[in-house]
Nucleic acid binder design. Structure first.
Lengths: 215, 215, 215, 215
DNA sequence: AATGAATGAGTATTCATTCAT
DNA sequence: TATGAATGAATACTCATTCAT
């Protein structure tokens, strides 16, 4: 508050040595995200991290390990964020209200730079890393679907929604939200897209319409 | 007729020179599809194409040009296939019947090795090639959506479908079909998926439900 | 005379097959002259000769042989030209007149594209070909010097010139003429040079001054 | 003093990093000098310099840049040497004495390995590098001629030399000295050449004879 | 004889990885 | 710990040479 000493922030060296790995992972996230595993250069990662090339090897045995760890940690961070969101939902709300609430949350979440990049990497490069794939599948996909399918199941039970397999409905949800998140990230390719809030409305409208009992 | 030399097939030299570019493009499709632009090795492409490394350079000035041309030609082939499908639909059928018909067609089309690889490349590497992106956007995405939105518009007119923006509905269609196509290609990650025919039913059911007028 | 058939000149093929080697050697002369032995490309030589790449190999076993033969034949042509000039000199003229006459002849000869290129190749690449070097030394250098030293010797005998070793004087002659020929070919580097005729006068004046008896 | 580790010299790593560029340039000088720009191999340059191939790229962006820089630096070194020589001349000596003095100096200088190689490169390859050519022309040629022409002008003024354009005379001087330097470097081709000291005498005798007033 | 597509050894250049400081 | 110069294996690209036609 008062007169902090001429900031150690100015020099990268020796600033908070425990932060080094994270610094590197952050830089790696951007470079790998932009150019892929093969295309990214350790030199650039080091430069972006404000660290010498050799320093990376103090924390990660090689490029591939750095990539893996970067994906892992980003994944974990993403999961944590998503998790935090889950508990915001009031358990007494209607299923539709919950879907709306969750829909808005995921819509914000999925359009995040971090998540979009992760998604690109997953579809692009993760086939070479089956274990990371499995991790992604279990921790992210399955977990997300359970959340949604839980809500749907309750809605079906309550008669709010028509009889539909909650897992199937959860899959449709993923499909709509993830696809649109990707598209808004490449608006040049999809000029007919409205603004983000409007898209969310369109998805919710479409999705809920399909779930409502057809009288 | 009698006495034709059998050996002609033994050597690549001079055997069917017009086939060479396509041969190379096919090999490139697989290697680039597996490892991406940076990861693929010209050497492997040559080996797979059954030609010498230098031969590639007889037809393509460099690796990037080969990549571009491979994407372009695959795209064009994909468009042609999709195009052919369009005209199969009988114009007097109900909109729902058309959607079902088209839905089955695209479901088969999108799960094609060629299309899946293309999709992976588009999401993974095409950001580095804005012109290819534009080509993809105009020729593939826009074209496909027009086809679907035309059907929807007719359904809305006829009162078969509820009032919905046909372009929006077309987007929802893309989202469902493309996402599921990607997923069935990675079944390890999505163990809850049923068999392909079942998934198509699930999608059609979900999609049409949302379009039907809510009495 | 009348109505010659649509000129065979138009197509390179089949036009005077015995001329092929010379055609190739001419093209080689230019390409090697411009880019040196290593820098020249057989492809370009073939193109310039209006011949397919493979054709070169019908007449020359490889690139180096082509280079050697090109140098040899150019050398021989150059020698023949120089030789022809020798006999023009009237044997009864004064030594000074002969020097002037020869000086003008060599001045024209040395500034020839062919000779200049030859000279460049000799200084640049010929160290790798000792036998060509020897050939050059004996046939060109020695021969030229003998011609000059013969004239000088007669001039000394007659008292027209001071007592000087005719071979030494011949060397000085070479030095002046060859250096200036190189320089006028690179006038950008030697902006103080006058026009060609003037340079010849300067050289003759300087040269003869040194040979005249100092009373 | 006592006990200094001897081993430091054993490895190239980290041994005197500032010396690396010069080390490489020296090696480049020899390889380019022997085989020309196209003929020299980076691999050989590295080997001769005692470094790994990659190390070259730490200091020079590519082969051509290495070539340019090698020529430039050699040129500069040559100019420095020549410059140093200029000031040795005592200003009160006769013009003839100065010419003799300078003549001996340049004779030694031009026969230097460094200068001979430079000359070969200039005539052989420098046409592809107009800017280097210009540099050479201005810094080396023009500079050298001014030095000589200054002496001649003084000699003419004093009546020591006949009336001759000093720049022309300086050119004749270059022609004699440079040609002979080249020749003694290829004695096989010029078997009639005497030993070096004798040649110098021959040149001085010939040159001064031409400058002396013809009574 | 002539062609030019095909070959593959050769070379410049890049970049992950090491290591002396 | 941290550095960044040095390494050398890997790879894109070139071009002399071959050979089926």
């Amino acid at each position: 508050m008062t007169d902090q000493p001429v900031s150690t922030e100015l020099t990268t060296r020796r600033r908070d040595p425990e932060a080094r790995p994270q610094q590197i992972l952050d830089a790696a996230f951007h470079e790998f995200g932009d150019r892929g595993l093969a295309g990214a250069r350790l030199d650039d990662i080091a430069k972006r991290a404000g660290v010498a090339k050799g320093t990376i090897y103090l924390y990660f045995p090689n490029k591939e390990a750095l990539f893996r760890e970067m994906v892992r940690s980003t994944l974990i961070a993403a999961i944590a964020t998503a998790e935090a969101r889950r508990d915001e939902a009031g358990p007494n709300d209607s299923a539709e209200a919950l879907i709306r609430q969750l829909g808005a949350g995921w819509w914000a979440f999925l359009r995040t730079e971090r998540v979009l990049t992760l998604h690109r990497l997953v579809t692009g490069e993760l086939r070479q890393f089956p274990d990371l794939m499995a991790f992604y599948a279990e921790e992210v996909i399955a977990r997300g679907r359970q959340l949604v399918s839980g809500i749907i199941a309750r809605g079906v039970q309550r008669g709010e929604f028509r009889a539909i397999d909650p897992l199937v409905a959860a899959r449709m949800y993923s499909a709509l939200w993830m696809s649109h998140a990707t598209w808004v990230n490449n608006r040049e390719l999809h000029p007919s897209l409205g603004h983000d809030a409007q898209i969310l409305d369109e998805m919710l409208d479409f999705y809920l319409h399909s779930l409502r009992p057809s009288v």
